[in-house]
């Protein structure tokens, strides 16, 4: 649905970007990242690590907004985000299913 009212400085707004790194071998499969990512970026992968857990993976072609919540919530230090600058809102691809939580 197109918004009829838009912020005056919309063309100046920049959205931060991040690159998600997942360390597969540390994951214990608790699912916190999958459940609580505000952009719903993660899904359970088919891969199995040495402990027998399925680590998460990022849905391809979706952009991370570098909020860092997954890195903070991950109990096993298995996820971190690398800063990748900013981009304007038009060029970013967010998960259409994402909702404000």
């Amino acid at each position: 649905m197109p918004h009829w009212r838009q912020p005056l400085d919309r063309d100046q707004i920049q959205i931060p970007l991040g690159i998600v790194h997942i360390i597969d071998e540390r994951c214990k499969g608790c699912g916190f990242c999958i459940e609580f990512c505000p952009q719903n970026l993660f899904i359970i992968s088919e891969r199995i690590n040495a402990k027998g857990y399925h680590p998460p993976e990022v849905i391809p072609d979706l952009d991370c907004v570098n909020c860092g919540l997954c890195a903070l919530l991950c109990p096993d230090f298995a996820i971190y985000i690398e800063d990748a600058g900013t981009r304007s809102p038009e060029t970013i691809s967010l998960n259409p299913k994402s909702e404000v939580k």
């Binding site: 214990k28 608790c30 916190f32 096993d76």
Partner: peptide
């Protein structure tokens, strides 16, 4: 000393990382 002994889904890891 890692990985830690805490169970899958335990909140202690989150408390430590915070």
């Amino acid at each position: 000393r890692l990985p830690h002994i805490w169970c899958q889904g335990c909140g202690l890891g989150t408390a430590l990382s915070t």
